[in-house]
Amino acid sequence: MKKISIFIIAIIAVIVMFTVVNMSTYPDLPVNSISPKEAIEKLKKANQIDLVKISQDDNDAWYITENQNGVTEVDENIKKFMSSNGWAFTEKEGSGLFFKKDSGESSVVTTEMWTKKYFLVKVPSHF
């Protein structure tokens, strides 16, 4: 009877540990310059900022934002962000938001649901 009790306790402990480890990890980011936990911390430290830059290379800048009220709110935050930098929203197709400038330049910003709680936003560097 003692052996069975110890075995059951060991199984429960393994299940609890597995659950805790899975809950404390995030999927990989599409960039290598920052870890997922660092990206979340950066967003939390920013407080009221809707989009927080987590990485930039020659081609793209990556931002993270919290998913509080769905993709519509994320899209609105991107539109505000881009318009404050001189870009006018033209249309949305799938996960891409299309923008134009008065100069005729165009840009596509894409969104990606990273977890249930967070979205990643890819903005071309020429922006």
Rank of each mutant, 00 (worst) to 15 (best):
Y118D: 06
A46P: 10
D57M: 02
K45G: 02
A46N: 05
N67E: 10
Q56S: 12
F127L: 05
I34H: 07
P27C: 01
E105V: 13
V74I: 13
A13I: 10
D75R: 10
S83D: 15
V109P: 01
E93N: 07
Q48L: 11
N47G: 09
G96C: 05
V123F: 00
I78V: 13
L51F: 00
S107A: 12
N77R: 09
S5H: 11
K53V: 15
K3F: 07
S95V: 14
Y118S: 08
V108F: 03
K79W: 04
N59V: 08
K37T: 13
S24R: 11
F89L: 07
I40T: 08
L43R: 14
A13G: 09
K42A: 13
P124L: 01
I49L: 12
A13C: 11
I34W: 00
K37S: 07
Q56T: 07
M23D: 10
S95L: 14
I40Q: 00
V109I: 12
D57G: 02
E66A: 14
K117T: 04
A13D: 11
K122R: 15
I4P: 00
S95H: 07
L29E: 11
T65M: 07
V71F: 05
Y26I: 13
Y26N: 09
I34N: 10
S35P: 09
V123K: 00
S33I: 05
N77G: 11
K42L: 13
I49M: 03
